[in-house]
Design a protein around this nucleic acid. Structure first.
Lengths: 154, 154
DNA sequence: CTGCCTGCAAACTCTTTGCACGAAT
DNA sequence: ATTCGTGCAAAGAGTTTGCAGGCAG
């Protein structure tokens, strides 16, 4: 729980520094988010947060998510499926690629250190200063194809 | 016009082979798409297609876009801005990265040959067979920052 | 002729926003 | 006491879909 508390403190501090208020709803949403071990959607986060504090509304979840991503506590992943995914940003690196299994719908985070290099190289040729990079690989599950069952299937 | 006709023939052939009908609307949408030199949205394509055949409806545009992307005549780009972008897939390579200027809103297509290698490497470690990769770099315009005007601004 | 394709408009999904009330500072 | 934050419900934006009529094969 120490890393959770450390992150929660970081969140409290962030809120205070920004002149934002520390509300029960924001804390519930935060705790719900950091209890997750997999990627989750805004709608799922609403459910999780309501289990902690049932006064949490959808609007507040949507209003809190940008705060948490701006403070780098959460990472936002858009795999182009209509809805966005989020997950706790425990580690430090920002150079991460996503591998999306089209069968499991699972998202794997893999380091891709060369991304930053590529971004700067390519952008400097265009007279642009890179802000962020995203690399995503869509793939099919080998085990599912061979045995008909995906071991990661939820 | 020869490359346009070649592409249009490819489209006719694709439709026929799939048992789909060659309609005026589909041809108008196709011609509109291949007249573009920049990325365009579904809504823009509707406008362009209506200039050729004003009977084209929004529904048909949305129903035709998947056909054209599946036949690899169009490439779909999702930069996570709510709406998807498309552009004629003239070249052959599928290993392309997008550099998105946050000031111009322009999208540049840049080759990134190492993407395939990275995709296979990473996916094979996870027991997955890569289907597609996307690499996107978001960047700010240097000229805009320095002079206050973006030379590419439309 | 047959049935795929079409336009229209309504439905859908995800997200954002206006408003009046409620709670943090 | 101020105001910012909240829930609710409606509004938005982009895309999809049901239906009755129309045109390709």
């Amino acid at each position: 729980m120490s890393s959770l508390n450390a992150s929660r403190d970081k969140f409290r501090k962030f809120l205070t520094q920004k002149g934002l208020r520390v509300t029960n709803q924001r804390l519930a949403i935060f705790d719900a988010a950091f209890a997750q071990k997999e990627h989750f959607t805004a709608e799922q986060l609403l459910d999780y947060a309501r289990a902690i504090d049932d006064s949490v509304s959808r609007a507040t979840v949507y209003r809190t998510l940008p705060i948490m991503t701006e403070s780098a506590l959460l990472r936002e992943v858009d795999i182009g499926s209509g809805e966005k995914f989020y997950y706790p940003n425990s580690g430090g690196t920002t150079q991460v690629a996503q591998v999306v299994c089209l069968d499991c719908d699972k998202i794997f985070e893999i380091s891709a250190p060369f991304m930053e290099w590529y971004g700067s190289t390519v952008s400097s040729k265009l007279g642009l200063t890179p802000v962020s990079q995203r690399l995503q690989v869509s793939a099919h599950c080998d085990t599912l194809r061979l045995t008909g069952t995906c071991p990661r299937r939820s």
